[in-house]
């Protein structure tokens, strides 16, 4: 094994740090994110020792809400990525290996899925389904986000299945399942993990976009996107309200992008030609 690329290590470190904040944050900063501190006045306080990032217009502690938002946004991204990865891998493998008819059906589905703007689909879906709890919203995000991944899996799987070692395996009696599990999947692990990391980042960004038009994770649950949306009205008077969650979201998405990039370039399993 070659040493991991430095970029990948840094990106992974940043994401791990965000994960630690999400998991251990409530222990380090045990403040209820929904608690209203100054009930009658409902003023947005500036940063202070009691509230390092101030309070929002509903007089809630912004740091506590940022930590709560990290929990929601990261779980949201993970859940959406897992769903997209599962569906995309299954569909891509089926298209490549289960025969020309399956390939045509899945191929058409992918073309349509990629042609229709995803944000539009999500807006229509959330409008039709009503306000979904965040986990279901994440599943919906995954269900609408596997098309690109499936296309990648399909083309790589097709090339691998037509390649020498898959053909040799078939000549020795390997069936479709064995072909998929032994000869295709392990050889596209790099592509898959890079695509999954990207799906994670996309889901978080899209949730922020939905929050902006009031269709995101429902209040009072805090997500980074929701916090940005809550804070934008006070951008000139209390900029930290929107800037803190924006910074968190951008850091997370940029780190994920860098990680995906590094995986794709450095992965020993990324390409067929290279050996581990």
């Amino acid at each position: 094994m070659r040493p991991p690329a430095r970029g990948a290590a840094i990106a992974l470190g940043v994401l791990a740090l965000l994960g630690v904040v999400a998991v251990l944050g409530p222990v380090a900063w045990p403040v209820d994110p929904d608690h209203v501190f100054d009930a009658p006045m409902l003023v947005s306080a500036s940063p202070s020792v009691a509230h390092p990032l101030g309070t929002d217009p509903a007089s809630r502690d912004v740091l506590a809400r940022l930590i709560a938002g990290a929990r929601v946004s990261l779980s949201f991204g993970l859940l959406a990525a897992v769903v997209a990865l599962g569906l995309g891998t299954l569909a891509g493998l089926a298209a490549a290996l289960a025969g020309p008819r399956t390939d045509r059906v899945i191929g058409a589905l992918i073309d349509v899925g990629l042609a229709v703007p995803r944000l539009l689909v999500l807006i229509v879906l959330t409008a039709a389904l009503g306000r979904l709890p965040w986990a279901w919203l994440a599943v919906t995000m995954g269900v609408t986000g596997w098309f690109g991944l499936a296309r990648q899996v399909r083309s790589r799987a097709r090339a691998l299945a037509a390649g020498d070692f898959a053909r040799a395996a078939r000549a020795l009696g390997a069936g479709t399942r064995r072909l998929a599990l032994r000869h295709v999947l392990p050889n596209i692990a790099g592509t898959l993990s890079a695509a999954a990391v990207l799906a994670f980042a996309h889901a978080i960004t899209l949730e922020a976009a939905l929050s902006f038009i009031g269709q995101g994770v429902p209040i009072p649950v805090a997500s980074w996107g929701g916090l940005i949306s809550d804070g934008r009205a006070q951008l000139w008077t209390s900029p930290w309200l929107a800037l803190a969650p924006t910074l968190a979201l951008v850091t997370c998405v940029v780190a994920a992008g860098a990680l995906a990039d590094a995986i794709e370039r450095a992965s020993p399993w990324g390409r067929v030609e290279s050996a581990p």
């Binding site: 020498d164 070692f165 040799a168 395996a169 000549a171 390997a174 069936g175 050889n187 050996a275």
Partner: peptide
């Protein structure tokens, strides 16, 4: 037919460099 391949009829391919799966 699949069960026949590798058991009753088998094949040695031309390219030893690429006919083996690199990850196993």
């Amino acid at each position: 037919m699949r069960r026949l391949r590798g058991r009753r009829i088998s094949m040695v391919f031309q390219e030893p460099m690429t006919a083996l799966n690199p990850v196993f």
